[in-house]
Design a protein around this nucleic acid. Sequence first.
DNA 1: TATGCGATTGCCT
DNA 2: GGCAATCGCATAG
Length: 198
Amino acid sequence: MFDRSFFESTAVEAAPGLLGAHLTVDGVTLRITEVEAYLGVGEDPGSHSFRGKTARNAVMFGEPGHLYTYFTYGMHVCANVVCSPEGSASGILLRGGEIVAGVELARARRTTSKSDADLARGPARLAVALGITLADGGADLARGRFSLELPAAASAHSSGPRTGVSGDGGGPAYPWRFWIPGDPTVSPYKAHAPKKRA
DNA sequence: TATGCGATTGCCT
DNA sequence: GGCAATCGCATAG
């Protein structure tokens, strides 16, 4: 069980404290090593909630400590933890981590990964390894299949520009990617893909 | 109603 | 290291 008030601060404030946390879903436990913070309406051009509430991002506007999932690139699911009080709509994207329990099950789900470090390195991989699907959107991380243990003390961490965010939301103006330095399960930094063929 | 593209990954050269 | 896959959602008309 975690202290829900931890997620009532903004995503940027809470994100570093989520590093080192243990998230368990159906017997698979992840030690979180990399996250990105996204703020709310009108505050953050890179955030799904920047332009206001829509059917897709509705759960971001709900109670903190719940799961926000979304589908992208026609094939991938990514998972976020809702932050800030109801109506504020900020969130923390889970970008990478180490599987510390239930490795066999995670391997079975991620048959393409070549090493255990790749099981949950990257947001879409992480969701697959934990068995998180779109149907889990809105789930309370303290109930049902989910449980979350926050670290007793904040881990040492680095911060930098967010990965894969296009337009104004990317770059050094929003250094809201946080990771545990030197950890092999942190995804490699990649700037937003330049526009593809015309 | 129509159109463009994304908080990515994995396979190909 | 480079690019194709794939579709729901947001934006424009």
